[in-house]
């Protein structure tokens, strides 16, 4: 399975998939996509990189242990929910901020988006944790 073609292409494929996963994540509110599917794509990217380049290499590239990403995601989703406390509305109520970009388009920032990014990190973190732990040999290579 670990041919030279695969090994050569894998880094580009991984980068492409990560970028694509972010794209899918951000368009998710209006087009097909979202945090869950984005996280799955990113996790597959990491799994592919792990198969081709070895787990220790992936761990080095990720800097943090993948489960940390999952924890970060839950934290982020919870923070997105808690934002509502500042404007005295119920927990997890969506808050929106529309920024006029001047050229007729506007940028929409919202707590549901923050929440979705949290979902993305949880799925990414949990799945890649499992995948990497399984890819690893007994001696950690």
């Amino acid at each position: 399975m670990n041919t030279i073609i695969f090994r050569t292409i894998a880094p580009y494929l991984t980068a492409l998939m990560v970028v694509f996963s972010i794209f899918v994540l951000l368009r998710g509110h209006n087009e097909p996509g979202g945090g869950f599917i984005g996280g799955l794509i990113a996790a597959s990217a990491i799994a592919i990189y792990g198969i081709s380049a070895g787990v220790s290499e992936v761990r080095r590239a990720l800097v943090f242990h993948p489960i940390t990403f999952a924890g970060f995601g839950v934290l982020m989703a919870a923070i997105a929910g808690l934002m509502s406390a500042f404007v005295d509305v119920p927990f997890l109520m969506g808050l929106w901020l529309f920024i006029d970009l001047g050229d007729g388009s506007e940028l929409a920032l919202s707590t549901p988006m923050l929440f979705d990014i949290g979902v993305y990190f949880v799925v990414l973190g949990a799945i890649s944790t499992i995948a990497l732990a399984l890819e690893e040999d007994e001696d950690g290579k």
Binding site: G28, H29, N30, G94, A108, P112
Partner: peptide, 8 residues
């Protein structure tokens, strides 16, 4: 909810 993707 400002979103067209109902599932999301």
């Amino acid at each position: 909810a400002h979103g067209r993707n109902i599932v999301n």
